[in-house]
Design a protein around this nucleic acid. Structure first.
Ligand SMILES: NC(=O)c1ccc[n+]([C@@H]2O[C@H](COP(=O)([O-])OP(=O)(O)OC[C@H]3O[C@@H](n4cnc5c(N)ncnc54)[C@H](O)[C@@H]3O)[C@@H](O)[C@H]2O)c1
Ligand SMILES: NC(=O)c1ccc[n+]([C@@H]2O[C@H](COP(=O)([O-])OP(=O)(O)OC[C@H]3O[C@@H](n4cnc5c(N)ncnc54)[C@H](O)[C@@H]3O)[C@@H](O)[C@H]2O)c1
Lengths: 251, 251
DNA sequence: AGGCGTTTGTGAACGCTTGCACAAACTCAC
DNA sequence: GTGAGTTTGTGCAAGCGTTCACAAACGCCT
């Protein structure tokens, strides 16, 4: 309603905090945010839905509908104010303050994550590292010391940690998740290839590299199968390469 | 139709190769496959849709509908033959032969990926590593030598690579993608936080860690906002902790 | 002030996805 | 062989997400 511009959170906290934002929209807001930051660095003050949609790689109608869920922050005939929209999305995503994140499992992958600069530039701070290997405990990585996993409750409470990343082997992941939940963590990002069971109220998202590759593999499989059948409509845009699968031929 | 059991691909390649498999189903097949492998190692010969659904973390009706798209590979009153279903899903996903994957950008993350054992156990083989940094070229990682990115066309052709992983900084990713496509790669898994533009016929999937965390952050934000309002239905399962956001209070 | 080109916000239609519920099909015991 | 119990495969309806298309709103130029 009132358009005062006292930094972020301009006249938004007057109602509920978007209890019914569609999940698909939530998943895209971070993409818009990244695109907006790029635009801001490039010097843009405003951007049209068409322009932002292109930068984020989505349909412009979808973008407008997504943003309309947050309220009316665009100006017809002009577009969206980049800085205002950044502040608005960051507010909705709860990024107005930097969130503390715990990382459990400082192995191969964990080391890379611990040293990743993209965390802090996008609203997060790795606040603590944990491992169970006595040989790893005490090691310093990027200014952080690796704690014994036994100290989880203590450190989680002290650092006000609510989000954790699991980068342990799969066989340890459920046990780690249980301990995280017991320590008060309510959001988990899981890199181990297994399903985690957690109580209601705890969110889990997973990243499984092999699954992504297998989905790509399916489409590769489908593409190479198409080259074996003469296309009824020779569209010409498909590059016909010798099939590497050689499987449909084996019948 | 005919139920001969000549290893994998039993009487399937007689039609088209699943041109209309729903995308949501394709994304879940790898989950089922992983769960099935676990079950097979645990000694299960058959599994019910209920059991497999629980192991994969999905609804059993959804699982049955997904599998029904592949054909009838279950036995009513019994369940699914684990080994047969594994072979079937692997066939559909195009995993009957190990696929060669190129990895571009052997930095922090790339090192972890290059040493990851989960690739080879799930149908893939890292066939080549590439980087642009002269200091990195020639380095040996896990038995593989890091090639100059300039040798991309040559190596991609020699190793029959159709899938590539991009683990370079974001500012280099589009250029790398262009070179990959030019070299004949038709599927890309992108870890750089940026949108890639590729021609039709090339598939891109992205993994963005910060996006996952920001989605979790949204739900954290929503949860902590709920604790400030007295819940109309005190369900008791929600653990009320002092709000760490302190933002809804600032109004 | 008024008209014109531009862009947002959104109603409505469409397609995809999910979940229920149940008949058909199978095994096993006797 | 028959009946009881179990589990698959699927029609159907409800929900969710996407896209189109357009009126309302805005800036700008005259
Ligand atoms: N390396 C990759 O590129 C990659 C890619 C995708 C997924 N993953 C998955 O990420 C996970 C980690 O992979 P990695 O290559 O880093 O493995 P890793 O073996 O190198 O590291 C695992 C770490 O977890 C620690 N750990 C084991 N049990 C623990 C416990 N109970 N509590 C705390 N810490 C414990 C180990 O001490 C070790 O430091 C695995 O599940 C793997 O499948 C890895
Ligand atoms: N490190 C992580 O945990 C992590 C997590 C999520 C996403 N990412 C993303 O993954 C990417 C890599 O991250 P990183 O931490 O490994 O960065 P890094 O700087 O450690 O490694 C990047 C590597 O890419 C190489 N490179 C640069 N330009 C190249 C080009 N044109 N062709 C080929 N190689 C090139 C560099 O020489 C370097 O070896 C980044 O986009 C990052 O945002 C990293």
């Amino acid at each position: 309603m009132s358009q005062q511009r006292n930094g972020q959170a301009a006249g938004v906290s007057d109602g509920a905090v978007f209890p019914d934002l569609p999940e698909a929209t939530v998943a895209r807001l971070p993409e818009y945010l990244r695109a907006l930051h790029n635009l801001a660095e490039t010097g843009f003050d405003t951007v049209s839905s068409e322009g932002l949609a292109a930068a984020a790689g989505v349909n412009s109608a979808k973008l407008r509908k997504d943003l309309s869920h947050l309220g009316s922050y665009g100006t017809r005939g002009v577009g969206y104010d980049v800085a205002l929209l950044i502040a608005q999305i960051e507010h909705v995503l709860g990024l107005t303050q930097r969130r503390a994140v715990a990382l459990v499992g400082v192995g191969n992958l964990g080391h890379a994550l611990a040293g990743y600069a993209g965390f802090s530039s996008r609203g997060f701070r790795i606040a603590a590292l944990f491992d169970a290997d006595p040989g790893r405990i005490g090691e310093r990585i990027n200014g952080l010391v690796v704690h014994d996993i036994a100290r989880l409750p203590e450190v989680v409470a002290a650092e006000a940690i609510s989000i954790a990343v699991i980068a342990t082997p799969a066989h340890a992941a459920q046990s780690v998740a249980d301990r995280l939940v017991a320590a008060g963590v309510t959001s988990i990002l899981n890199f181990a290839p297994c399903v985690l069971s957690v109580p209601d109220g705890v969110d889990v998202r997973k990243v499984d590299l092999a699954i992504e590759l297998q989905i790509l593999s399916f489409h590769e499989h489908r593409k190479s199968a198409l080259t074996t059948l003469p296309s009824p409509t020779g569209d010409g845009s498909m590059k016909i390469r010798p099939t590497l699968d050689g499987e449909a031929l084996a019948t």
